[in-house]
Amino acid sequence: MKKDSNVIELVNIGTVYEGERLPVIYDVNLTVKLGEFISIIGPNGAGKTTLLETINGLLSYDKGQGFVFGREIKKHKSEIRREIGYVIQNFEMDPLAPFLCKDIVMSGRTGKIGTFRFAKKSDWDKVWYSMGLVGMIDFAKRPIGKLSGGEFQKILLSRALAQNPKLLLLDEPFSNLDYASRKQVETLLNRIHEKYNITILLVSHDLSFVPSRCKRVIVLDHGKIVMDGGREKILKSDIINSIFNGKGEKT
C-alpha cells in the first residue's frame, strides 16, 4: 500500500513503551502535506517526543499504521530516516567531550553517505553550507561541549540540515534559550522553510513561540491529539487555557 501525496500519514497510531501496559500516545490520526510547517504543543509528558520518535521509527507503534513519504515506517526505517532531520530534545553535553562542531554537523550525513563510503568534498560543502545557514561557520573547529545552549541548538539544527532532509522534526528547539536566541532560531526556521519548502514539525511546550510561518497548530494532551487546525483559531481557543492551566506563557 502506498500513499504518495502526503509526507506523513498516521492512522490510529498507538505507541507503548517497552515494559509498560498503557500506550503513551493513542488514537493518533495525522496527515501532513508537503511543505507544511506545524507546531505541536502540549504540556510536559503529553507525548510529544514519543510522537516524533514514532514518526522516525525510533519507537515502534503497536497499533495502527504509519507512513512517511508514502512508505510504511516499520518496514523502511533506515531509508525514511535518511530523509528526516531530527533535532533531539536538549541533552547534557559533557564539557570535555572530544568532538569538534564540524564533525558533529558532518555526522548528520552519515546515513546519507552510506556504509563503506567516505565523506567527499561535496559532503563537506554541505556541512559548510548548513553551518553558514545557521551562522555558526566560525565555530567549525570549536569543541562541542564548550558551546552555550543557543549555539549548541544551532549546531544540532545545522547537523539536521546538512542531511538535506525532506522532513525536519524539532523537539523543543527553544528550550534553554534566552529570548534573543529564541528569536534567532525562530527567524532561522522561518527562513529555512521559506527557502527550501521543507516540511517541518516543531514540538514545544510553550505557547508563546509559534514561528510566524507556521500556519497549523496541533495540541497534544495526555497522549491524544485534542486540537488540530489553523494557528489563529487554536491559539485563541479556551481549551488551550484549561490544558495549560494558566501555565502557558501567553494566552
Binding site: 522516525n56 525510533l58 533506515s78 531509508e79 530516516r81 535518511r82 528526516i84 531530527y86 533531539i88 541533552f91 567531550a97 568532538f99 564533525d103 558533529i104 558532518m106 555526522s107 548528520g108 550525513r109 552519515t110 546515513g111 546519507k112 553517505i113 556504509t115 563503506f116 567516505f118 565523506a119 562541542i144 547537523r159 542531511q163
Partner: peptide, 23 residues
C-alpha cells in the same frame, strides 16, 4: 578507518546516530 564516520556519530549520541539511518 572504514567505519570512522559511523563510530563518531554513535559516540556523540547514539539516538541521533540511529535517527540519521545508522544501525
Amino acid at each position: 578507518v572504514i567505519f570512522y564516520k559511523e563510530l563518531i556519530a554513535i559516540m556523540f549520541n547514539r539516538k541521533l546516530a540511529e535517527s540519521s539511518g545508522i544501525n
